[in-house]
Design a protein around this nucleic acid. Structure first.
Lengths: 111, 111
DNA sequence: GCAATCGTCAACCGATCGGTTGAATATGGG
DNA sequence: CCCATATTCAACCGATCGGTTGACGATTGC
């Protein structure tokens, strides 16, 4: 029924995948470059990227022999909208947001 | 590391659990009453509630022989804050939100 | 005190998950 | 043309998931 929301939240539930999304915030990346910081096989990262793609959180476009990964932030909108129902987040907590950014971007995404 | 975020997103990835959260928006409920609309055993719903509790999304308090379930919207705040990094949702899409509420509250949460 | 109610526990099931390895498939460069 | 690079596929693995059933422990009402 609302399978889309299932896929988005399930995709976000894994720290490797959230780290990948954070990396893609900076720029589009090739699969090999996405995989580089992680202590797992390329095939494993490729699977993670497939899950993110199925959820609509990223898109992948093959140019030549390299496949470029691009963040698709719109897919988060449904999930974000859903969450608004519960927390009265209209007043976005900017302090918490800033602390989050410092923490998130300051750490390497290895697992 | 950031296990809390893992637990919250994983908990949200299941439609039954999201339906439970929606029900608890209206009021605190006993486990048996939470389970009533679902076509699954009480034990299954009890497990879902345990998962929501571990994620901090609800709390459970036993009064007498009935255990009351209460929404804990603060747990969504971390997840919501995390998501802000990606979509520029500062301008919350109120139309989409309203459409969501109509759809969500208009449907029965059976699965 | 006893039966009914509320809820969890434990064991089990098939399916999915996150990872591995090794082979296969493009594509590009010299 | 050939080799290296980029990525996926396929098979496998143990762990977890979402569900069931049946037994069990608390609590309540009469």
């Amino acid at each position: 029924m609302d399978t889309r929301l299932d896929l988005v939240f399930a995709a976000l539930a894994d720290p490797t995948r959230r780290a990948i999304l954070t990396m893609l915030l900076e720029d589009d990346m090739a699969v090999t470059d996405v995989a580089e910081p992680f202590e797992m096989s390329l095939a494993a990262v490729s699977k993670h990227l497939a899950i993110l793609t199925r959820a609509g959180l990223i898109s992948q476009e093959k140019r030549g022999r390299v496949k470029w990964c691009k963040l698709e932030p719109d897919a988060l909108k449904d999930a974000s909208v859903w969450m608004q129902a519960f927390g009265q987040f209209e007043e976005l907590d900017l302090d918490a947001f800033e602390r989050f950014l410092d923490a998130e971007l300051g750490q390497e995404p290895a697992r």
